[in-house]
Amino acid sequence: MKTLKNISFWLLFIAIAAVAILPIAQSNVSMREDFFLILMLVILASSTNIIMGYTGYVSFGHIVYFGSGGYVAFYLMQTFQWHFVPAALVGGCVASLLAFLIGMPVLRLRGAYFALATIGINEAVRSFVSNFEPFGGSVGMFFNFGVYDVYGGAKNAGQFAYYAMVVLALVTIATSFLIKKSKFGLGLMSIREDQDASMVLGINPARLKVITYTISAFFPAIAGAIFFFKNGLIEPGPAFELHRSVEALVMVMLGGFGTVTGPIVGAVVYERLRGFLITNETFSNFHLVIAGGLLLLIVLFVPAGLVGWLRLRFAAVRRFLE
């Protein structure tokens, strides 16, 4: 396929893989933990970009798939002693199914209505899970001691989770790239620009939107499975924390929506900023304020985001930074 001959794809892929291997090569656990989190944010941001950046449909409540995938996988591992890999995959599939079912009616709506609906979905699923006894209700679930034995103990499980996150990140980015450079992606961007005109040009917006939304739910779900597997504990609040998907949105806008590298850059920059703010005495409580301020500045003055702006300004960059 054309993408595999594309130089920027391989550059990106190798760069990410190289950075990801670093903590393993140096046996640096705190770096590994740091990167674990950043990779997770990259996955969340990229998935948000797949639906938002390419189709223009803002999914404010995208975190619902993170929580859903996490819960389903956790449940299978804890209750039925499933191994992580099949459990996570099932979690991903369930989340995609959920996205498909919800997406079909809800994606018929235009921009703002959709955005509101996604918030409602997250809140509803969270309320539901809080009441759902098999998932532990409002208390959540936690692993029994034996669960990590299969992986060689809790420490090894941590390393395993890291590898999983790296693989997932690479797959997510590759998917994002493939979509963007394909005929499918062109159709999506056409819908984003003008849905009605797209219909006249032969595009079936409903079908493309639903497929995209379904795909975009898969990756956060598995990320959730990995995250809560490592945590050993899952609760409704953290699993469906609306602010996480909002932060993903800020990352996408910061880096540049509609691009592949934008969400990655956005995630890294945002996380570093947040890390700095939280550990800093004066700013720690203000991180929400600063994130909000940052988003506002971007929206008002640099709506294309960092990567977007670079691509607009410097044509040469376009070849290398998708």
Binding site: K2, S182, K183, L186, G187, M189, S190, R192, E193, D194, A197, S198, L201, G202, I203, G258
Partner: peptide, 23 residues
């Protein structure tokens, strides 16, 4: 389609129109 180039605009027409061509 404002944020797409002229060429991309026309490519959309060719991709999804009667002939349904690959990219």
């Amino acid at each position: 389609l404002g944020e797409l180039t002229v060429h991309e605009n026309v490519t959309v027409g060719a991709c999804f129109g009667r002939e349904n061509l690959p990219l």
